[in-house]
Design a protein around this nucleic acid. Structure first.
Lengths: 252, 252
DNA sequence: TATCTTAAGTCTTATAAGAGACATAGGACA
DNA sequence: TGTCCTATGTCTCTTATAAGACTTAAGATA
């Protein structure tokens, strides 16, 4: 059939027809983006959405299926469908791929050295799609596992989005995922991220903060994280000690 | 409904009921594993499978959906559903996550230094689920991009599976993915792989083969690749030069 | 007559809708 | 206080129809 919800404008070039379930998906996505339902909350039931959009429940199901596959929604049979959040334990370390070589992961902690406001460098501006000189927030911190400093991170955020972010606010939040903080305090939910990995030698500062000799090979992890609409809202560079940990990746 | 294809044996403890579409999925998977349809070939149409298994076409569809999501099958509207293969260009570098920092990837080549039969070390045996001393094939090669040596790899394979593998056979196959060779010549299709990444300093041998100074930080990538039934059939360790390339990863 | 074009036919997978089964949580009730 | 019932979710399965991709053959054209 290829029905459309709103009368489509005729375009001679691009395929103007989108499957019905994808149109529904786009509408739900818009609701998510607009904050109609907050992280952790339940969205309306499938039949409710079906009634709202005048389609069958099965069509809504297929739309939600895709959003759930993208980790934007979480289904719980018999309960409902919920907006995914970085708060729940299972999502806690979704973006951290570090694992100990042997044994169980030790207790996690973070220590923030610096959290200051500044101006975007050319590189930061490029990564975050800002103009050079725009306001940014710069964070430097160390992640500890089992009491040992394992990761040194420099995080750069657009100042416009993260207005009231201070070292105190970060300290209060220690132990939990920083993405949870972004979510609860700044209404910015991270959807996906791209990482680039390289090997690098520890410079004197990194060596001191991580407790290794200068020149030690470290894993350099550069990440750009995106929110709705593929808007980049975090740029970070991490240096990982890999003497007793490793970065895990599953290939399919 | 929760119908079963064969009368289920009653088990008091585990959920003996599997959704119908998962039973179908298991049956198709068994056919794939048994080589009923070879890589690149089309499997029977949805309605044909539906008739064979006495279920509706939609149920077969859902089973195939999952197998396609796992990259075991490839759907082509109007044509059929095909057994995935490492031969087609798009799948060619599915497991190689290296990308140049700038510009397009240069032409690819590989140079094999060594391909000999030997006995499994304790470590190799553990990785490949063999007994120490079992026959293995050991390959050492360098991957070149744009003429430059970028990756040094040591590959270990179970000798029982890769009986006639020789340096000549490898050389004939140069330019294409080695997984394609496994598939066509040894009937072993790689399904998925686990990787562990670390940073390491180049030892003299690696430094010479990669054309860098000894001690240069390199990305160490250890991979175990699995075929059907999660059976490990390849263990490899790669050393990547990351001065002008990086390992990319997408996080969801 | 030989060749190219085009339209119909017939495969395939993709989309849509609906009915019934299963899971969960909370209130009614003994 | 504990158990059962029921309302309300998602999950499973089926059926029907649409859309995409080849094949074939009729017809136009040289």
């Amino acid at each position: 059939m290829t029905a459309t919800i709103q009368a489509p404008t005729v375009s001679p070039v691009a395929p103007t027809f989108l499957p019905l379930y994808r149109q529904i998906k786009a509408l739900v996505l818009r609701g998510l983006e607009a904050g109609e339902w907050k992280p952790g909350e339940a969205i309306p039931s499938e039949s409710e959405l079906a009634a709202r959009y005048r389609v069958s429940q099965g069509t809504v199901r297929k739309a939600i299926d895709e959003l759930a596959a993208e980790n934007l929604l979480v289904r719980r049979q018999g309960r409902g469908t919920f907006v995914a959040t970085h708060g729940e334990p299972r999502q806690q370390f979704r973006f951290l791929r570090l694992a100990p070589d042997h044994g169980e992961p030790g207790p996690y902690a973070s220590r923030t050295f610096e959290c200051r406001r500044g101006r975007a460098s050319a590189e930061a501006a490029r990564m975050l799609e800002l103009k050079p000189g725009d306001a940014v927030v710069a964070i430097r911190r160390v992640l500890l596992f089992g009491g040992e400093p394992i990761v040194l991170e420099d995080i750069t955020l657009p100042g416009a989005v993260f207005k009231g972010l201070t070292a105190e606010r970060l300290a209060e939040h220690e132990g939990a995922s920083i993405y949870h903080l972004y979510e609860t305090d700044f209404g910015t939910r991270m959807i996906r991220a791209d990482e680039k990995l390289k090997a690098a030698a520890a410079d004197p500062t990194a060596a001191r903060l991580l407790g290794v000799a200068a020149g030690t090979p470290l894993l350099s992890v550069e990440r750009v994280a995106f929110t709705y609409g593929d808007r980049p809202v975090e740029w970070r560079r991490g240096l990982y000690r890999t003497d007793r940990h490793h970065y895990t990746n599953a290939l399919y």
